[in-house]
Structures are given as structure tokens and as C-alpha cells.
Design a protein around this nucleic acid. Structure first.
Lengths: 247, 247
DNA sequence: CGGCTTACCGTACAGCGTACGTCACACCGT
DNA sequence: ACGGTGTGACGTACGCTGTACGGTAAGCCG
């Protein structure tokens, strides 16, 4: 699928996101099937494992056949991303129904956290612009609603949501890197290896505070850090900060 | 340079980070020179542009010669990362001297923000474990000190710092994607293209809150979002939240 | 049944990280 | 001064990537 002018490409991409895709041909290929295949691969082996060849193979089809349905890898990733975010809430009112704004934001944060656990590759997606598909747009509406009418300006609503979602993504990112034991060794093994070498090599460094804090954190969590603790702690700090702004 | 057991590799990587590298051979190559070349390339063209071939070419040397000094690309990236974070503070006391803990944290956040502006590729680095080199360790000590003795537990100190740094990274990430006009079109061009298509395609969607907020934000910032505003706003919210915890 | 449209895909190219094996340089012992 | 040798440097090659191009063949219509 040849690339054209930037404007034409962009328009095509948006139409694609919003469900304008070609009917299945004689191989039975469809855009949703391609997206699903890509998502399965990404869930299982990370975003780097999603190559056009692998996706095609997974569908029993030649690599180049995909280009009849999807302009390229970038658009495939955008489709996967939007689909993943789209599965977050059954209904646009779900967060609102969780309770007051604080409980709603906890609900939102927890849901996003779980989404990143299910689809860690979402944290690797690096899109130059937001992928404004139906999933993302619906998510934004659902998450913004509980913040409406509690005393924040429109801009503040957007900023608060961005702050919370950013915090979730950041914690989840650390968590995902943390959990990935497949790539090498477990946390404990890693620390057991690193620790003595560090002790030797850092001899003579003057680190009174970080030395103490690092030791405490290590003892507390049996690891260099505990992303899940940081997630819940940070969330409450943020919510307290928002509350302070409301008063 | 052949890879060995995980433990040996890890040990070697840490020694490398802490300055244990081979003396220059007959080509005059050194590890710092390689790291510098990689950093220059990354600053100019992003992390993806840092290939072993390009770095070698930049140094007037064959690609494989680098492997005599650096085990592979992963370690090169780790070295670059640690060096970049190491240039953040002239002295370990710099943040502390900025004033009380709030001012110190604003100083820390701003410095990190500027670092990410200077080296946007830092936001693309995806390391399985923290790269515990001298730069990163010194940074941790410097940033932790202003939080010492203000009424937080050790674990809370670590969590608060992680929260703030995560927020900076997240804002800077959005900012960096935002600024990258080179890859295609400017913000305004993009929105002018996307907006009418979205209007058409979203006809019939029920988006009362996000529609209003999106419009307000767009008018306010002449863009879909303003990362710098989100950065300072979010930071103050977080600081307020921490203050609430201190009371 | 013939012919045309078009979906499909085999091949190819430029790029990547890096394993392997060779070459020539610099140094050292005599 | 010279020969041998250890090793730093690197050319080549492999398997992988995204995707442009052009040929093949399948399905449909007259």
C-alpha cells in the first residue's frame, strides 16, 4: 500500500480507526482479525515480536497480503491500541457509577493498571500523535465524567485526568519491567548478583541518605522498588492534592 | 564480545558502568569516546538512529571494533543513560540548596525536565533493570536529600521522589512527541486535518463532557494538549498532596 | 467456456545487531 | 636488527526487520 501525501495518509488512518475497512477478500482476511492476531502476539511476546511476517504467519497468509487491509505497521499498532483502550469500560458511565469523584478516580486508575497488566505492550507504544479512535475517545469521555461539576475548570479536569493516567502508566511501566523475569533472572537473583559488585565498586562514595533509604526500601519490599506500592501511594497523594485544590 | 552466563554479563556491565574499561588500543578508541559519539547521534536523531554501524562510522572505525570496548548495544545505551543522568547536578547538594523541600522538588523537577529536553532519547530508553551507574546513584542521593527529615518515612521518601520523577518523565514524553514537528506536520496542520474528519466520523457519538472539555482545552492551548502546563500543574498538585500528608 | 479484474504473495532491497574468522600491526625476546 | 607472536581491528555473513514492485492465479461476469 503506497504512501501518499501526509494529509491523505492521515485521513485514511482515521477512517480506518473508525471502522472503514475493506470487505474480506478470497482469503477471508479482515482488519479486525489482523488486529486481533497482532494483539495476541503482543500480549504473548511484547510489541517487538509483532512483525508483519509474524502476524501474517499467525493468520496463515502471506506477509504482503496484510498491506491490502492495513497501510503499514504504524496503523496496525494504532488499531491495536485503540481496540485495547476500547475494551476498558463496558459502559461510558462505569467510572461515574463507582461513587464520588475520588472513588471514581481510584476505579479509573485501577482499571488502567489492570489493562496495562493484560496488555503490557501498550506501554511501549510510541505514537507521534494521539490515536483518536472510538476506543480512546470513549475512554476519555468515561473518565472525564466523574470530574465534571466538582469544582474544577475544564482545563483542570483535563490536567487532573492526565496526571492520574500518567501516574498509572509510569507505575505500570516500572511494574512491567520489574515482572519480566523471562528476560533473564528473577528480581532476587538480580539483586543477589548486583549487590556485592555494587558494594565493592561504590566503596568510597558518600551516600548517607540514599544508602539508608535504599536499604530500608530493599528490606521492606525484598527488591529495589515496589511499583504496586508506589502506584497506590502516589495515587492517594495525587487525590489529596486535588482535594486541596477543591477547598 | 561473546555473551557468557547472565551473572558474568551482569557483573561485567556494572564494572563497565563504574569505569572499568580497557585502555585505548592502536586506533585510539575509548569507551567514553564511544559513549559520547552515541549520545551525539541520539541527541541529534533519536535513539533509533544510534546503530553500532553509525556510531563506528562517526568515530572513523569499523563497526565491529566497538565490540572490543562495549559488549553490545544494550550496554552502550546503559552507559549513555548513566552519563546523561550524571551531568544533572554539579554537586550532590545542589537540590538541597534550592530552599525548603518544596522549592527543592521544584528545582529537581525542572532540572529533569530540562535534561529530557536536552536528551529526549532518555525517554525512549527501555532497560529491564535500573542502570545503577555512578551517575544514577549520585542523582538519587542528591534528589533524596531535601526530603530527609521533613517527616516522611524512608519508604515514603522513595515513593514521593518516584512519583515526582515519574510525572516529569510522563510530561516530558508527551512534550517530546508533541514538539517533534520534523516527523510530518506541525500541531496546527495536524489538527486542521484531523478535526473535520473526526467531526464527520464521530457524528452520532454521545460525548457531552469530553466534547466540551476538548473544545475548551483546544481553544486555550491551540492544541489537543499542553504538556508544559500539565507538567507545572501536576507538580503543584503532587506537592500539595505531599504537604497534606505531612500535616 | 473465455476473458478480465483484482486479491494475493514471492522476491528484493536496505537496514539492523552481532557471531565468526582472518589479517596486519605493534611489541618483545633474542 | 630481526623474527615470532599476541591481539586489536574489521570484512563477511546470517537472520531479522518494513515494505515497494511486479507477477500469478483465482473468481466472476458475459
Amino acid at each position: 500500500m503506497a504512501r501518499g501525501t501526509p494529509v491523505a495518509d492521515l485521513t485514511r488512518s482515521i477512517y480506518l480507526l473508525w471502522g472503514h475497512h475493506p470487505k474480506p477478500g478470497r482469503s477471508g482476511l479482515t482488519v479486525p482479525a489482523i488486529v486481533e492476531a497482532g494483539t495476541e502476539l503482543a500480549d504473548a511476546h511484547g510489541l517487538a515480536a509483532v512483525s508483519m511476517r509474524k502476524v501474517a504467519e499467525h493468520l496463515g497468509v502471506g506477509a504482503m497480503s496484510l498491506y491490502g487491509y492495513v497501510p503499514g505497521k504504524e496503523d496496525l499498532t494504532a488499531l491495536m491500541t485503540d481496540a485495547a483502550y476500547g475494551e476498558l469500560y463496558d459502559d461510558v458511565t462505569a467510572p461515574t457509577e463507582a461513587g464520588n469523584w475520588r472513588e471514581a478516580m481510584r476505579f479509573v486508575a485501577r482499571r488502567n493498571w489492570e489493562l496495562y497488566e493484560r496488555h503490557p505492550w501498550l506501554l511501549e507504544v510510541r505514537s507521534p500523535r494521539p490515536d483518536l479512535g472510538p476506543g480512546v475517545v470513549g475512554k476519555y469521555e468515561a473518565e472525564l465524567r466523574p470530574l465534571d461539576g466538582i469544582g474544577l475548570s475544564d482545563v483542570e479536569m483535563d490536567s487532573v485526568l492526565a496526571l492520574i493516567l500518567g501516574h498509572v502508566a509510569d507505575s505500570a511501566r516500572t511494574h512491567a519491567q520489574h515482572v519480566r523475569e523471562n528476560t533473564g533472572m528473577t528480581d532476587v537473583e538480580w539483586w543477589d548478583t548486583v549487590s556485592p559488585v555494587l558494594d565493592q565498586v561504590m566503596r568510597g562514595e558518600n551516600l548517607p541518605v540514599s544508602g539508608r533509604v535504599g536499604a530500608t526500601v530493599g528490606t521492606e519490599f525484598q527488591a529495589a522498588t515496589d511499583p504496586e506500592h508506589n502506584f497506590t501511594f502516589g495515587l492517594e497523594v495525587i487525590l489529596d492534592g486535588v482535594q486541596a485544590r477543591l477547598d
